[in-house]
């Protein structure tokens, strides 16, 4: 747990939805203060795994340890205390569409701090500047492009200066320059705030850029974990096929 430098530890996680077994014994440690990228096929359970880390989905079997505490068996109150150490960027940003950008980013601040309205505004402006989006404060989410929404989502995720940030497919569906910009933002956020990040991706180039640590999920299990170089040189056929984007190999594509 925490003594080996892992802030999050998934131990023996099994999860099925109906008759479909999605996770089949996940064992994975997330090192503290680093960015871990989880790669794997679309629809392969990466998001499901990520959602286990923050208690949005409970496993059928296994433990989710955050700093040694098993969040699966926590009360709502304890779980909420743990969740306040997290920030999460959702796949489609999950901004509250009835609120302006300011109110979205200010939401966690208003819920969990006693800051004055003036201080809240300052924090919001600071976070929006960090994600490179000054001056959109009074827009509604529906008026923003997909990339802008993700950046607002990130500003909201870092509003409370969390220790751990979870990114659910931050670059999926974005054009290459925007993907690169988001990847740089993830790397910058990690450097500036010294946080632990977990990034779900199937963009292998992006994984090399932002990750100090890469894990591959395949058929419900973690089949490889290591530094980008270790993954690049992995002898595993499945890993090689995935990172080189080949249609032929052990992964059944169709």
């Amino acid at each position: 747990m925490s003594e080996n430098g892992n802030i999050i530890e998934l131990a023996g996680i099994y999860k099925a939805f109906g008759s479909q077994q999605v996770l089949k014994g996940i064992n994975l440690g997330i090192p503290r203060g680093q960015t871990t990228v989880i790669i794997g096929r679309s629809g392969g359970g990466k998001s499901v795994m990520l959602k286990h880390m923050i208690g949005l989905i409970k496993p059928d079997q296994g433990q989710v340890l955050v700093d040694g505490g098993d969040i699966v068996r926590m009360s709502d109150h304890q779980l909420n205390e743990v969740r306040r150490r997290f920030g999460m960027l959702f796949q489609e940003a999950a901004l509250f569409d009835s609120m302006t950008v300011v109110d979205n980013v200010a939401f966690p601040l208003r819920e969990h701090t006693n800051l004055s309205e003036k201080q809240v505004r300052e924090k919001v402006s600071e976070k929006l500047a960090m994600v490179g989006l000054p001056g959109v404060e009074h827009k509604m989410p529906s008026e923003l492009s997909g990339g802008m929404r993700k950046r607002v989502g990130l500003a909201r995720a870092i509003a409370l200066e969390p220790e751990i940030i979870l990114y659910d497919e931050p670059t999926t569906g974005l054009d290459p320059p925007l993907s690169a910009a988001i990847n740089r933002l993830i790397a910058d956020t990690q450097k500036k705030l010294g946080v632990t990040s977990v990034v779900i991706s199937h963009d292998i180039e992006g994984a090399y850029q932002v990750g100090q640590n890469i894990a591959m999920l395949y058929q419900g299990k973690i089949i490889a974990q290591g530094t980008p170089d270790e993954i690049r040189d992995s002898p595993d056929e499945v890993v090689q096929q995935f990172i080189h984007g080949r249609a032929e190999g052990p992964i059944e594509v169709i």
């Binding site: 969740r83 997290f86 959702f90 796949q91 569409d97 819920e111 969990h112």
Partner: peptide, 16 residues
């Protein structure tokens, strides 16, 4: 709509 666009999950994540 809030459920299918993960806004309800976002509330949980923000401890609300």
């Amino acid at each position: 709509t809030m459920r299918v666009t993960e806004q309800i999950d976002a509330l949980y994540v923000m401890a609300v």
